[in-house]
């Protein structure tokens, strides 16, 4: 009997070339990181069950689920607004089956869940010039006064839907933006992001979610 191996493959298998690219300088202006091995579940409140859904989320994650375009950090996951009465739960993948089961149980009767762990690719863009690079492919206004830490947005990049949110500044003091992109588009969008970053110098890497 043959052993069937189920190796996993990132959608950025070919596109992501780790290391520094583009303009050279003391510090790359943009840092790109693919955040691998995530559990990602879309939570959509059932008709008339928005309050119950919020309650269940509070119980499971210890935080209020975002009701406006925000990202909130809960006990075991980040909750990112992804539309009216729905949000996306993002967590490092530990024990996938039990993580999904726990959510299924918590939201029984209040919300529909859709497992999108493989449907999206998470790309983190940070660095001194991150905002300049993003301005080349996103029409969002990322100015501090408009898009402070914790802000989220559903928007389009290259005509495809992307969820943005900003997390706490990096240790270097520069802003950090997360982009959830559709898996099938991620090879293409990665090229767009790198292309937009080359003039500032860009360092690319991937890492497991933590």
């Amino acid at each position: 009997m043959v052993d069937y191996l189920w190796n996993t493959q990132s959608p950025l298998q070919k596109a992501l070339v780790p290391g520094c690219h583009g303009a050279t300088g003391a510090h790359p202006g943009v840092t790109l990181r693919e955040v691998r091995d995530i559990v990602l579940v879309q939570v959509m409140a059932r008709r008339g069950k928005a309050a119950e859904t919020a309650k269940a989320a509070k119980k499971l994650f210890g935080v209020e689920a975002p009701a406006t375009p925000k990202a909130v950090i809960g006990k075991t996951a980040t909750l990112v607004w992804s539309g009216p009465d729905q949000f996306t739960v993002i967590a490092p993948r530990t024990d996938e089956a039990s993580q999904l089961a726990a959510m299924a149980q918590a939201f029984t009767g209040s919300a529909s869940l859709s497992d999108q762990s493989d449907g999206r690719c998470l790309i983190r863009v940070s660095g001194a010039r991150a905002r300049d690079a993003i301005a080349k492919f996103s029409s969002l206004d990322l100015h501090d006064s408009v898009f402070p830490v914790g802000t989220a947005a559903n928007t389009s990049v290259d005509h495809t839907a992307v969820n943005f949110w900003r997390e706490a500044n990096g240790t270097d003091g520069h802003p950090v933006y997360n982009m959830l992109v559709f898996t099938s588009f991620s090879d293409s969008l990665w090229h767009t992001i790198v292309d937009s970053s080359l003039e500032y110098g860009v360092e690319a890497s991937s890492a497991k979610a933590a």
Partner: peptide, 11 residues
Amino acid sequence: IAAPGVGAANP
């Protein structure tokens, strides 16, 4: 404004 069935808050 939103269409009547947007979201889930109000039946």
